[in-house]
Simulated assay, not measured.
Amino acid sequence: MNEHIRTDTFKVSKKDDEALSYVMEKSGNKNKSEAYRVALKTYVDLHQLPREVAELRSTIQTLNDSIQQLYFKLDVQGGQS
């Protein structure tokens, strides 16, 4: 079970309230607490993407190098027949 910290009030601008209403509408949530959680998770996910993309690029490069080595070995073995 998650431990909750109560925050009674904080000020938001009209623009921020409209953005939260948009999150509520798009996520199908009827309460602001859940909409805040969705917005925060989306923010975190969005900022983790560059790191994940870099890791994927590294993995793809490693796989490409392995494939090139396999093709080289196949060419060498094919030429010896």
Rank of each mutant, 00 (worst) to 15 (best):
R37P: 01
T42V: 13
T59G: 01
K30C: 00
Y36M: 12
L46P: 01
S27W: 02
V53P: 02
A35E: 00
V38K: 06
E34D: 14
A35G: 02
K41D: 14
A39G: 05
H47N: 15
E52L: 14
S33G: 08
R57V: 02
R37C: 05
Y36R: 04
H47F: 14
E55Q: 13
K26E: 12
H47K: 11
R37N: 09
R51A: 15
K30R: 05
I60W: 00
A54F: 02
Y43V: 05
A39R: 03
S33D: 08
T59R: 07
I60N: 01
K30S: 07
I60F: 00
A39Q: 01
L46S: 13
S58M: 07
E52M: 12
G28V: 08
E52I: 09
L49Y: 12
V38Y: 06
S33Q: 06
N31E: 03
V38S: 06
K30Q: 07
D45M: 13
S58C: 05
S58P: 00
K26H: 07
A54T: 02
E34T: 13
G28C: 09
E55W: 00
Y36D: 01
A35M: 01
A39F: 09
Y43Q: 06
S33H: 06
V53S: 05
K26A: 07
R57H: 03
V44L: 13
K32H: 01
G28R: 03
Q48T: 14
V38C: 07
A54L: 11
D45G: 02
V53R: 11
K41C: 08
L46A: 15
L46N: 08
E52Y: 05
N31D: 14
L46E: 12
L49E: 14
T42W: 10
A54C: 04
D45K: 07
D45T: 09
V44T: 09
E55G: 05
P50Y: 09
S27G: 08
Q48S: 14
R51N: 12
P50T: 11
K41E: 15
Y43F: 15
A39L: 15
S58Y: 04
D45A: 13
L40Y: 08
R51Q: 15
E34R: 08
A54M: 09
N31H: 00
L46Q: 11
R57N: 12
S33P: 00
K32R: 08
V44F: 10
R37V: 13
L40D: 07
R51K: 15
Q48R: 15
V44H: 04
H47E: 13
Y36H: 08
L40G: 04
V53I: 15
G28K: 06
A54S: 12
A35R: 00
R51L: 15
V38L: 00
L49W: 09
K32D: 00
Y36K: 02
Y36W: 12
R51Y: 08
A54K: 12
T42H: 11
L46R: 08
R57L: 06
E52D: 11
V44K: 09
V53G: 03
L56C: 07
